[in-house]
Each structure stands twice: as C-alpha cells, then as structure tokens.
Nucleic acid binder design. Structure first.
Lengths: 223, 223
DNA sequence: CGAAGTTTTGACGTCGATCAATCGCTGTGG
DNA sequence: CCACAGCGATTGATCGACGTCAAAACTTCG
C-alpha cells in the first residue's frame, strides 16, 4: 500500500507556464557550446527556458572539482531558483536556444497573476524534489546504480518519442560530475552494461536500451 | 571580488514567519525519540516548526540504506516542501516539541497574505539552497571534508550563543547517513581531529572547537 | 593529413567500507 | 547499591570499489 502510493505520488510534474502570461515577455537567446549563461554569484536578472540544446547547472570548488546539480533539457526552466543572486553556474552543453525572461517583469507578473505565481512555486518545488532524489544517488548508491539511475532518468525525461534510442546530449565528463564519479568509471559501467546486452552504444551521444527492465532493476528505483 | 560577493550573498537566510499571521493557527505537538512524525508518501496535511529537540528528514531505500536530506533544529520549519504528499520521512532525533500547522489553513493564509506567501517561498528557496550545497558534499568531498563541513554547519546554525562548545543532538549513525559515510568513518575522523587538537569530545552529544580556523580550512568552505 | 580533444581500456593504488572486538554509557531489577 | 543487559561509540585488521595514472583508439575539424 505504501509502496504503491509512493510510486504514484512521488513523481513531481515538470511545471508548464501558461503561454499566455509568460509568452509575451520572453526574448530568444542563443548560446554556443560551453558558453557560460550565468555564473554562481551573478545578479539574477534573467531566468530561462530551454528551447533546444541543453544546459548544465553546477557548482565549482576552488581546486576545480565540479558538481553538476542538474541538466536543463528542452522544455525545462532554469535560473528561477534564486531571486537575488544565482546559486549555480549555467553553461551550454551544446549550441543552445533559450527564451529569457527579465526578472523585474517576472516579479510583477508573479504579484499580479495567481497562475504565474503557482507555476513559479511549482518550478521551485520540482527543483527541490529533484535535488533530494539526487542526494540519495550521491550519498548511498554504487557506481552501477548511479549510471543506471541516470539512464532511467533520461528515459523518463524524453518527451513524446518512445524510441528505445535515447539522446545523451552531455559528455562523459558531464555525466561523471553529475553522478559524483570519474570519467573512467562512467566508461567502464557503460561498457559493462553493453557487454551484458542491456544497452548498445551507437555513438557518443546516444544509447540504445535493449532491456529497460534490467536497467530499472539495476537502478534500485528509489523507495 | 567574485569570492567576496559569493561569501556575502550565498548565505540563504533561514526564513522567519510573521508571528502575527501564523502564530494563531499553530498547535503544539510532542514527539518522543525516534518517533515518526510523517513518512514519505503520506498525505501532507500538516507542516511543522521545531521548538525544542530536533528532527531528521530522510529517504529510505528498500534494502534499508538511508540518506538524511536535512536536520531541522529549533526554529526551523519542515514539511512545507511538498503540498500534496511528503517527499521525505520526518523522525524525532530526541524528545521534541514542535508547532504544527494545518495545511488547509496554511493555504488559505498563503492566498490572502502577501507576507506569509513570501515566507513560504523563502522556506522552499532555503531548502533548495541547502540541498544544492549538500550535493557538492556528497558528490565531491572527502570524508575529512564532509565531517568538518558538518561541524562548521553546526557552528553556523547555532543561534545566539557564541560558546566554543557545540551541541550535537544526533547520533553518529545520523551523521553518517547525512554525510554519505559509515559510522566507523565518522568516529575515525572525529578521533583524528581530536588527536590533532582541532576539537575535543566531552561526550556523545557535544564537541568543543579549539581551532575553528583549521576546521574551516579542512572543510574547503565551498567556492 | 595532422592536431587536439574525447572516449575507452588496462594496471595499479588508495580511501573508505566491512568485519570483528572492546569499551563505556544508561537504565533496570535484585 | 551493584550486577547485568543492551545499545551506541570506538578502534583495529582486512578487503574491495572506485580513483589515479598511462596509453591507445576514435572523432572532429582545420
């Protein structure tokens, strides 16, 4: 009973802003691969929605260690989390198109429009939910569990298409910095999954899932 | 410049609800050590503020592994993060007193009162900020860095008192499950810090900080 | 074709986990 | 008041998963 309830209620829907309210105030921005969109500590004067490409949201340590907190993929919002200064650095994974919203306009809209307010709130709640799930991966899962959890996450974030081929827009290093591992461990786990027939790897930025059930089993799909 | 900015702006203030608005609708609850206040997946019909004692907020894996996402100490709010179902399990660290707020009253108040709304939003933002800082600890820090980061966090959360003795209301196991380590590693790191003269350990639930600068240096205070 | 960056694989090292024993509280009953 | 049981904390010995170092293969782009 508890497990069933958890399975049906834990999924936090990615919020969708009403196009009517926000559509009008956004402007299109382009970023090329590895460009910084904003850095941790910057004035948070703009927030974004990814149209195409992808973005990594990360924190850096003084000695160069990096932890990626999340990836923003097409349809996702980012930069809404902190209204004074950005808490994370945002960098383009690829050549990326995004719609950008001015902070002062967002705030005005949030004060006036109950729906926009609810959606800003839902965005924040979704990010918190995602971060808390990420904690269990980083704190308590093995390398195998992390890599399979990540692939399952990509499967579930993939929008309409039900292909068994999933797009992997980030590099092995990005995956490593998201999962708290090294590039080499990522490669080894992917190779092992390939050897076991669970997946195939047609190229750097794609994975074919042959046995999704095995993948989910290996990921210990939380609770 | 950037480092200075980060140091002054990254700290997310713990929100304080206006007592006038919320004070009226809270009721006092008591929980004894290790009692479950709510479980992951439960209907989120109440949210809480800790008065005395402490609470761990955690996720469990089916095989018993546990990740603690946060500790709620006196003055902290918890259970506000998810308005449908709770995303985390809350358990009392100690005999604990908390003020509990009914969800439907909170929602009504949030709709009516701009200040309450801002404070609910600030609570969520604080939790997200804390979770993102936690990610870098779990993903990229050594055992030594994790334990010292934790002690620094306790120092900074300690309210008015400026004593060098800090209260540690949780067990070694709780610390381990918060930091993604084992009980043994926690003990060993604490013993090493004691041997090096950085801290003293007068009892299970207290630490005396002799060299706070060394502690902060060892914690690699992020960014 | 050559250069630079990314991915993959192998050999080896290490940090923290595991297994095990002991210590030291705290509470309970004789 | 003391003996003892039970649980948490501590310390030691050993193990193993993942990191580090190194080299080769592959991809991309000039």
């Amino acid at each position: 009973m508890y497990a069933l309830q958890a399975a049906t209620t834990q999924r936090a829907p990615r919020p969708k802003f009403s196009n009517t309210a926000l559509g009008a105030i956004g402007t299109v921005s382009l970023f090329e691969r590895n460009n910084t969109i904003f850095a941790e500590g910057d004035d948070a004067d703009r927030a974004y929605k990814v149209v195409s490409g992808g973005v990594r949201l990360c924190k850096m340590m003084p000695d160069g260690r990096r932890q990626i907190a999340a990836f923003a993929l097409p349809g996702d919002y980012f930069g809404f989390d902190w209204l004074g200064h950005h808490a994370l650095t945002a960098e383009a994974l690829n050549d990326t198109t995004a719609i950008s919203y001015a902070r002062n306009r967002l705030e005005r809209l949030g004060d006036e429009d109950h729906d926009v307010r609810a959606e800003l709130y839902a965005t924040l709640r979704h990010d918190l939910w995602a971060a808390q799930n990420h904690l269990i991966i980083l704190g308590r899962q093995s390398a195998r569990e992390r890599v399979t959890s990540f692939l399952v996450e990509l499967i579930e974030r993939r929008k309409g298409d039900n292909l068994s081929t999933i797009a992997v827009p980030m590099t092995r290093r990005d995956m490593a910095d998201y999962l708290g591992l090294t590039v080499e461990t990522i490669c080894r786990e992917l190779s092992a999954l390939k050897r076991e027939g669970v997946i195939a790897i047609p190229g750097r930025h794609a994975v074919i899932v042959h046995d999704e059930a095995a993948l989910r089993r290996a990921s210990m799909a939380d609770d």
